[in-house]
Simulated assay, not measured.
Amino acid sequence: MTTTKQPLPSVVSLEEWKLALDQFLVKEKALTRARDALSAERRKLPVVKVAKNYTFQGESGPVSLLDLFEGRRQLIVYHFMYAPDWKAGCGGCSWVADAMTHPAHLHARDTSLVMVSRAPLEKLEQYRSRMGWAYPIPWYSSYESDFNYDVGVTTAEGEKHGASVFIRDGNTIYRSYFTGARGVEYLGSLWTYLDLTPFGRQETWEDSPEGWPQTEPYGWNRRHDEYGV
C-alpha cells in the first residue's frame, strides 16, 4: 500500500519558531499601522452629493435611499450581484454575506448596513431563505431603478460587486467611498466595515478631522444584545 506524504511547513525547534514568529510580527505590525494610516486618509476623502431620488423595494414596501439609513448618519451598501434573470445570487457575494457582522455593532456607531441587488424582491427573499443567513441584514431590490447603473455596479459588461458608503446631513445624502473587486475580501468584522466610513471607528486614537465623533476605545462596544441597556 502506497501513501502520499502531505505538504507541511518546515518543522523547527521551539526557539527557532519563536525567533521566526517575532521577526514576522514586526512586519505584521507595520502593515497594521500602514492600514490605519490608509483608513485615516480615507476619512478625509471628499464626498459627492447624491442628486437623484431612488426607490427600492423592501419587506415593508417601497423605500428611498434616505430610508435605508434608518435614521443613522452613515450607510454602507453592499452591492450583491444578482441580476433579474439569474436563478441564484452570486456565489462570491454569498460568501461576503455569510461573513457579515451583526448589525447591532454598526448601529452603535450610527451606521447602517444593507444589501442591494437588481433582482426582484421575491427572488431575494427566496434566496435569503435558502441561505439561512442568521443576522438580519436588510436586503433591498433596485429592480426598475437606475441605482445600480448610476453607482457603477451594473455596466454594459454586466454585474459587478462592491461596497458604497454614504453619509447624510439631515436629508441631504453624499457618497463618500466605493470599493470593488478584491477590495471587499477583508470585509466581515465590525472594524473592517467601520474603517470604510467617513467617521471610522470613532475612537480617540484615530487620526480624524477635528470635530469627528470619538470616544475611548473598548468602552462603547457591547455584546450585540446589550446595546441600550
Results as ranks from 00 to 15, higher is better:
Thr3Cys: 06
Thr4Tyr: 10
Val11Arg: 14
Val11Glu: 09
Val12Ile: 10
Ser13Asn: 08
Ser13Tyr: 06
Leu14Asn: 12
Glu16Tyr: 03
Glu16Trp: 02
Glu16Leu: 06
Leu21Gly: 01
Asp22Thr: 07
Leu25Glu: 13
Lys27Arg: 14
Lys29Trp: 02
Lys29Thr: 12
Leu31Pro: 02
Thr32Lys: 14
Leu38Asp: 13
Pro46Val: 04
Ala51Gly: 04
Lys52Asn: 09
Asn53Phe: 05
Phe56Met: 12
Gln57His: 11
Gly58Asp: 10
Ser60Gln: 15
Phe69Met: 02
Arg73Leu: 00
Gln74Val: 08
Ile76His: 02
Tyr82Leu: 07
Tyr82Gly: 06
Ala83Met: 14
Trp86Met: 14
Lys87Ile: 12
Gly92Lys: 09
Cys93Val: 08
Ser94Ala: 15
Trp95Phe: 11
Ala97Asp: 02
Thr101Cys: 13
Thr101Gln: 07
Pro103Asp: 05
His105Met: 06
His105Arg: 06
Ala108Ser: 14
Arg109Asp: 00
Arg109Glu: 00
Asp110Asn: 07
Asp110Leu: 00
Thr111Arg: 04
Thr111Gly: 05
Ser117Ala: 15
Ala119Gly: 08
Leu124Cys: 03
Gln126Asn: 09
Gln126Ala: 15
Ser129Gly: 08
Arg130Gly: 01
Arg130Ile: 07
Pro136Cys: 09
Pro136Trp: 08
Pro138Cys: 06
Asp146Lys: 10
Asn148Arg: 11
Tyr149Arg: 15
Asp150Leu: 02
Val151Lys: 03
Val153Ser: 10
Ala156Thr: 13
Ala156Met: 12
Lys160Asn: 12
Asn171Gly: 08
Ile173Met: 06
Tyr174Pro: 00
Tyr174Val: 00
Ser176Lys: 09
Tyr177Asn: 13
Phe178Glu: 05
Arg182Thr: 15
Gly183Cys: 04
Val184Ser: 03
Val184Arg: 01
Glu185Tyr: 13
Glu185Met: 10
Leu187Cys: 06
Gly188Ser: 05
Ser189Cys: 03
Leu190Lys: 13
Asp195Asn: 14
Pro198Ala: 05
Phe199Asp: 11
Phe199Val: 02
Arg201His: 13
Arg201Trp: 01
Gln202Gly: 10
Glu203Thr: 03
Thr204Ser: 12
Asp207His: 07
Ser208Tyr: 00
Ser208Arg: 00
Glu210Arg: 09
Gly211Thr: 01
Gly211Ser: 07
Gly211Glu: 04
Trp212Asp: 03
Gln214Arg: 13
Trp220Cys: 01
Tyr227His: 06
Gly228Asp: 04
